[in-house]
């Protein structure tokens, strides 16, 4: 078999300092070095990033959809974790 289909990599880009890396998309590359370079060319050619991570798609473990509820529902009943839970009188600033 001809080995020409390069593996898939997920690309994460930090768009500017102070922000975390965000998933931008994926690409094919034979190895990590070229994956990084291809990612730079593809996902930052308009200056969209200051730092890039590439991760083999195979290295990502995901929660599966049918576990979505048990995984994420508990957080949904803790509205007090969110700032909008609290009523603040009008005019109070810097809060």
């Amino acid at each position: 078999m001809t080995n020409t289909d390069w593996p898939l990599w997920e690309v994460f880009v930090r768009s500017r300092r102070g922000l975390s890396h965000t998933h931008a998309g994926s690409l094919h590359a034979p190895d990590a070095e070229l994956a990084l370079r291809n990612a730079r060319d593809l996902y930052t050619r308009r200056g969209e990033g200051v730092s890039i991570w590439v991760v083999p798609s195979s290295a990502i473990t995901a929660s599966s959809p049918d576990e979505k509820d048990p995984f994420f529902e508990p957080a949904a009943d803790k509205p007090y974790r969110h700032p909008t839970f609290y009523e603040i009188p009008d005019g109070v600033q810097h809060l």
């Binding site: 898939l8 997920e10 083999p56 290295a59 990502i60």
Partner: peptide, 16 residues
Amino acid sequence: KHTGAGRSGGTGATRS
């Protein structure tokens, strides 16, 4: 040859 894992990214278990 050089990483011993030329196709390491190949079998993606997930996508986001």
